[in-house]
């Protein structure tokens, strides 16, 4: 049996999208009541939950506290049933730890931590269903959760993945596209200023293609930013209607 044809001659991807099209994005803020902030996002079949606790006192050892800004504490985990093949542990493996670190770096760049010295902000994300672009879904969900918690940020952090198939940059990869063995780039962008909060790339890519790939990923991030903005505005409207009552 032949492998998957990631991009047809007619320019359609496996799921029928064109190279520059995102998957369907649906999101909601304020999913949980107990947490300070929470959000849920679906990017195609990738589903992520993010919860924010804080800012609060530094838990555990006081020595972790920073005198000039807040500590961002992240944990990334995946539901054991989230992948096609069942995972044995939800977190604690190398990949999850790496992902936690990436999230921490991303949000340290975006959250105005200097407003909360000597305190801690917890961001916990959970992948409920995984179909590629886990990092991006987590970042996008966490952005909404941080906004839900009322913690000021420089800008939305929007993340999207991009890859290279048949000399064409394709964005928002699904699992089948990610596992095709080609280059996968994850990029987190602060869209207003156009600053990159995190960029990471696996596998080799020729330098000539790098610009095209970055550009595609950044465009995708910007359109995601608009979607997230829409979600936040709608949420605010709903909440203000409720409080007005």
């Amino acid at each position: 049996m032949a492998g998957l044809e990631l991009l047809s001659d007619q320019g359609y991807r496996l799921d029928g999208r064109k190279p520059s099209e995102l998957r369907k994005v649906q999101a909601r803020m304020g999913v949980f009541t107990q947490a300070d902030g929470s959000a849920y996002i679906e990017q195609g079949n990738t589903k992520a939950l993010a919860v924010v606790y804080g800012p609060h006192e530094v838990r555990g050892s006081r020595s972790k506290a920073l005198h000039d800004r807040a500590v961002i504490n992240c944990q990334y985990s995946m539901a054991t049933f989230s992948t096609a093949e069942r995972k044995r542990r939800p977190h604690g493996d190398r990949k999850s730890s790496e992902m936690s670190l990436h999230l921490k770096q991303t949000f340290e760049a975006a959250v105005l931590t200097s407003l909360y010295p000597r305190s801690q902000i917890d961001i916990f994300v959970k992948i409920l269903q995984s179909d590629g672009g886990n990092y991006s879904a987590c970042v996008n969900a966490a952005t909404l959760a941080v906004i839900d918690a009322g913690i000021p940020m420089r800008d939305y952090v929007c993340a999207c993945s991009a890859g290279f198939v048949e000399n064409t940059a394709v964005v928002d990869l699904c699992h089948a596209e990610e596992s095709g063995g080609g280059t996968v780039m994850s990029l987190a962008l602060l869209p207003r200023g156009g600053q990159v909060a995190l960029v990471q790339m696996d596998a080799r890519l020729h330098q000539d293609h790098l610009d095209a790939l970055m550009e595609a990923a950044m465009t995708a991030c910007r359109s995601l930013g608009q979607v997230l903005d829409g979600v936040v505005r709608q949420h605010l409207q709903e909440v203000s209607v409720l409080t007005a009552e």
Partner: peptide
């Protein structure tokens, strides 16, 4: 398998 995730409460972290 019961996953007491940190989403439920920060005490469950790690």
């Amino acid at each position: 398998f019961v996953d007491c995730s940190a989403n439920a409460t920060p005490e469950f972290e790690g």
